[in-house]
Design a protein around this nucleic acid. Structure first.
Lengths: 305, 305
DNA sequence: AGAGGTTACGGGCAGCGTAAGGATC
DNA sequence: GATCCTTACGCTGCCCGTAACCTCT
């Protein structure tokens, strides 16, 4: 009998994702590697564990039986890394997907704290819009994401991070008339905000459409920095969380427009798959939760000035 | 985090035996190998697990914590080999210690059955007297032994195998006078039996001494075959279980002497360490139990003729 | 033709056994 | 000096990644 924990881990993920290729992505390896591991496991146990189908692979009865054991064993191994292993000894790569908003708030703080706590851990950071991050999570291409809203997939774990109000922001020089600014005044300008696939865009569109008038031009842009740049250049009014432009507000380069328009807040979550062995991921998610809670309070305080 | 099941197994045995060298023997490997495994485990967890002492090595608190997990994990792995693995796929080496009496009764039958059931399993068989087998078991040099009497060590598991009566046996030509033979008649002859360290020898000595007369000459011999040979040659009367000389009895070359002397039966057990992962050992012990039960009945039947 | 999995092959590295080197009694 | 463990070193064998192949739809 010669199988190891890696075999069980591979088997677990193939079972979960019902697909060799996705398991390979999830485990940062190649598909033939997965094939070999599974073959080895089946040979060692002398039993067929996985029924390879044309579109997806599914467990045999023996495979289901093994899955139960594999989950328990991997869970115990995770317990070991939690309770007996020294934190500084943890190592590995965590693939992190981040919505750009987070990049402009507390991401760097998290990165520093992770590297301080786990010197041997590498973060692979990928910045993208939340819908893409959501897909990447489900496909197993990233381990953890900080994105908009909970991901309602049974296998995903969501931790609430922070809640940022949206606001209409304009360049200091742009004159829109007396405040509070009405919808009509606003929509004379192009509105600059997040891409079409994202929740802020959809929410904004609903709010503007709800008023029953002609749709204003909406410039969507997947780069938050660029949105800020365009707003600074007076190209239009942007809809973003003021949190990300604290500096520009302080310097008086940008201002938050007083309006009566209610926009729902942006709610960010840390989301990851429920995975045995994902101790690191859980820890980092919890660190993010703590940092975001602290930052969020600070940001609110600043905004209330 | 990069440790495997082998690391945990090595750790488990070092913890049990409190000694690297003995763990190496138990695991059929070399002592530096054990050293390396433990070092690796400690490095991976970033924690000292074992306090190396001059005479024995003992677990640190973290080590005790890990031992708990290791036992559970290895137990689950054993469950896998029990319930999901195909028996024919089991492989490995089982080091078997056998008292010679067993060699002359049902050992070959067991060997055949083991090889039929587990084609990939190798048996390392060592024939020795029970006291030596007992030590080898405790030292972890053998995995399983068929020997005299239970081994009363907390970590050992004993299964009753068979019970063979002892008898005085003489060559067909040796004339000792009218039967039943008295002690006095018997002790005129040299008595040939098992070595001094063994239970039959001690029991015999007590019985003969109990009679309060001068001790007869006792030839002790660690080879049962040789005892039979000497008895056939008329050198003396031997004290052995008639079971092992079925053929000689049938051919009339040897005979069992009728006496009033009560000798306690030889009780054999299959004994092995309680070890997680020792699925093979448990299975073989159970096979021995079944075979011995069958054989034992047959032998009794034959003797009652 | 494209997605899913297997087979083939070469390079790198981990783990083993041998042998020599402390440490502790 | 005896016991116990660590360190050093060469070697083998495994495992990984690349690439080509097979097989369904």
């Amino acid at each position: 009998m010669n199988f190891d924990l890696r075999d069980l881990e591979v088997f677990y993920w193939v079972a979960q994702l019902q697909n060799f290729r996705r398991a390979a992505e999830r485990l940062n390896t190649t598909q033939p590697g997965i094939s070999q591991r599974i073959s080895n496991l089946e040979a060692e146990l002398g039993v067929k564990l996985i029924e390879r189908g044309a579109r997806s692979s599914v467990l045999t009865p023996k495979g289901r039986q093994l899955l139960d054991y594999a989950e328990r064993i991997l869970g115990l191994v995770a317990d070991i890394t939690r309770s007996v292993a020294h934190p500084a000894g943890l190592s590995g790569v965590v693939r992190l997907g981040v919505a750009e908003t987070i990049v402009h708030t507390w991401l760097s703080e998290l990165i520093e704290q992770v590297h301080a706590t786990y010197p041997n851990v590498t973060l692979d950071i990928e910045v993208d819009v939340s819908p893409n991050l959501r897909n990447a999570l489900i496909e197993g291409q990233i381990d953890l994401a900080f994105l908009l809203g909970p991901v309602s997939d049974p296998r995903m774990v969501n931790l609430d991070l922070c809640r940022y109000p949206l606001a209409f922001v304009a360049g200091a020089k742009l004159d829109l008339g007396p405040e509070p600014i009405s919808l009509t005044q606003l929509t004379a300008q192009p509105i600059i905000t997040y891409p079409k696939t994202t929740r802020p865009y959809i929410m904004l569109r609903q709010v503007l459409a709800g008023a029953g008038r002609a749709m204003p031009r909406i410039y969507s842009n997947s780069s938050l920095s660029t949105i800020v740049r365009m707003t600074l250049d007076g190209i239009g009014v942007s809809v973003i969380p003021p949190t990300v432009i604290a500096k520009e507000l302080e310097r008086g380069e940008l201002r938050v427009l007083a309006t009566d328009i209610q926009l729902p807040d942006l709610v960010f979550t840390a989301t990851h798959a429920h995975a045995p062995g994902g101790v690191l991921v859980e820890q980092i998610a919890q660190m993010a939760e703590a940092i975001a809670a602290g930052e969020s309070g600070a940001q609110y305080a600043r905004m209330n000035v």
